[in-house]
Design a protein around this nucleic acid. Structure first.
Lengths: 135, 135
DNA sequence: GATAATTTGTACGTATGTATA
DNA sequence: TTATACATACGTACAAATTAT
C-alpha cells in the first residue's frame, strides 16, 4: 500500500484513508502510536504538512489524539455507560465549542449529547461516554 | 478588538474567538461571508496559515462552511424537525467518517445521531436536522 | 462562449516554541 | 541536559472551482 502523488485524490486524504484502514483493521490498535510526523513524512515521501493534514482528519473523526511532546496515538474510547432518559425528554447532538471542549477535557472529534427533560433541566454528555436509553 | 501576536494565546485561536463572537452576536448572521483569507490576513496582520487554522476551528464547530471558489460564509443551520423515537430505543452520537460525510453531503462539524430500535433497525441522522423525542 | 479575477484547496519549505521523555 | 515530538507561524507556489467581465 503506497501513495500516488499524481492521483486526483489529495495525498493527505490517501494517507488518512491508509491510516484509518490500519486502525479499523486492528493493525494499529487503541493506544498504539501511529508514527511521528517526520517518520510518516519520510516513509511515504510526502511533506510534513500533508502528514499533519491527514492526522487532522483522523482527529476530527475521533480516531486519534495528539498533544505536545507526546507521540500521536490511536484513541482508546472509554466504556460507554448506559444513561436512562426521562420520559418526554428531547435529545440533540452538536460539537462543543473550543472553550467547552477544554473545560470538559474532551478530545477532538467527540460530539456532545444534550438531553432536555420535561422539567427543563438540561444534561450534557461527551458522546463517547454514554448510550442513552429511552423509556 | 485586535490581535496580540505576543500573547500566550495563539493568534489563530484569538481570531477564531473573535470571529465566533461576531457570529454569535449576530454581527455576522447566517449566510454572511466572513471575509476572504487574504483580507483577514491583511486586516489582522497575520499569515494566511493562521487565518486558515482559525477557519478550521470554526468549521469543526459547525459554525462556518467553505468550498473552492466560494467565499467562506456563516453556516445557516437547517430547521430541526422532530423525530419520534420508539420505546426502548438506544441513542448514540459520533462523528462521521470522511467518506460517510461526503456520501450524506454533510458539512464539517456536524455529528451523526444513531437510533437503535428494539427490533434491531438503525436510523442515522445528521444531528443538525433533527430533535429526537422520547416516548 | 471565452477570459480574467477571486477564492479556497493542496503541498511544499523554513523556523521557532513548548511539552515530554 | 539532551533529544524527540507536536504546535504555532511565517513564507511560496500552483491547482481547482466559482464568479465577474
Amino acid at each position: 500500500m503506497s501513495i500516488d502523488p499524481r492521483s486526483h485524490t489529495p495525498v493527505y486524504v490517501q494517507l488518512a484513508d491508509l491510516l484509518r484502514e490500519k486502525i479499523e483493521s486492528g493493525d494499529l490498535p487503541p493506544g498504539a502510536p501511529i508514527g511521528s510526523e517526520s517518520r510518516l513524512s519520510q516513509e511515504y515521501g510526502i511533506g510534513r504538512d500533508a502528514v499533519r493534514m491527514s492526522i487532522a482528519v483522523l482527529k476530527s473523526e475521533g480516531l486519534v489524539t495528539s498533544s505536545r511532546g507526546q507521540p500521536t496515538h490511536v484513541r482508546s474510547s472509554p466504556d460507554q455507560r448506559p444513561v436512562e432518559v426521562s420520559p418526554g425528554s428531547t435529545i440533540v447532538a452538536r460539537m462543543p465549542k473550543s472553550s467547552e471542549r477544554r473545560k470538559m477535557d474532551m478530545d477532538e472529534g467527540i460530539p456532545i449529547l444534550e438531553v432536555r427533560s420535561p422539567d427543563g433541566t438540561v444534561q450534557t454528555f461527551p458522546a463517547d461516554e454514554v448510550v442513552l436509553h429511552c423509556p
